[in-house]
Design a protein around this nucleic acid. Sequence first.
DNA 1: ATAAAGTCTATAAATTTAATAGACTAATTA
DNA 2: TAATTAGTCTATTAAATTTATAGACTTTAT
Lengths: 167, 167
Amino acid sequence: MIAKYGIIIKKIAIKSDIFVTLMISKKTKYAINALVYLAKQDERQPTRISDVSKAQNIPQKFLEAILLDLKKSGILASKKGKGGGYYLLQSPEEVNLADVMRLFDGPIAFLPCVTYKYYERCEECKDEETCGIRDVFLQVRNKTVELLKDANLAEIMHRESRLKKIL
Amino acid sequence: MIAKYGIIIKKIAIKSDIFVTLMISKKTKYAINALVYLAKQDERQPTRISDVSKAQNIPQKFLEAILLDLKKSGILASKKGKGGGYYLLQSPEEVNLADVMRLFDGPIAFLPCVTYKYYERCEECKDEETCGIRDVFLQVRNKTVELLKDANLAEIMHRESRLKKIL
DNA sequence: ATAAAGTCTATAAATTTAATAGACTAATTA
DNA sequence: TAATTAGTCTATTAAATTTATAGACTTTAT
């Protein structure tokens, strides 16, 4: 990144490219947008993939795979044939960003040694129990997961209402 | 990720591969390890790249580029020739993980729209000011940056001492 | 002088992300 | 039961990024 600084500045100014190293993937972003959109469709009427795709500006074929994954994980359900589409299977309160992010981007952690399900030791680490770097990243991970667990679809919609009132 | 679950489970069990989507890059990890190592070398005697490389298990050629970047950013200084090497230019209190991570992995944020220096709007976003998703990720980002700013090299070493006392 | 040690340029292998294409299957309804 | 709608599955590809590796070059201490 450093070696490319000159180019990067240019990119941001002209084409607005952005580094993605620590950011969520487009897949996760699309998934979250689609879920919030489905949560906003009152009733549990199925919504067509093509409708979600148009409304949220997500490439349809890409979205198909994403929704299928969300279905396999039990968050969404679908109905085939005419009048079919996708709908929330879980309640908006049950679906939180931590789970969605983990589904598509893997563990929420800056280091493998502070993950729960994907734990991996650092080779160079002499004593993990007393590693100061790990201690910091463990704290960050715990706080992040806490905040993302609280951020369920209902909460996200509440926040939007609140923000609209302020403005 | 989901489509590969079978393989992934196998990988974790057999070869312990890990997804890296939201994790810091090896470059950043190497940089942090090298910095903590240099901070532990009392006096400001230059330490050879080869010594850091061996002690921290970092490919030497890769480390050379990393240390050079840290030098360009003003964190380290170097001395050439015999008896040369790298040493901290800033005090251990001044060097924090937020700055180091930003240097190599770019902005600390899950979405471009909650970054400061690399801000980018989401195309699909109708009203950013009232976006509930953005509101969540902004909160996460602020907390994360706060914790990482506090995590300077001195603090990391303090934590190690504290952890050693507990054990 | 010469040996030690950092610097610079270029390139390559491996992995991952993001996206596309097309055939196939299931369900509804006329 | 045929036609249509809409989700499902498999394969492939393009682009970008990460993680290195190689080798020539420059500077400095003794």
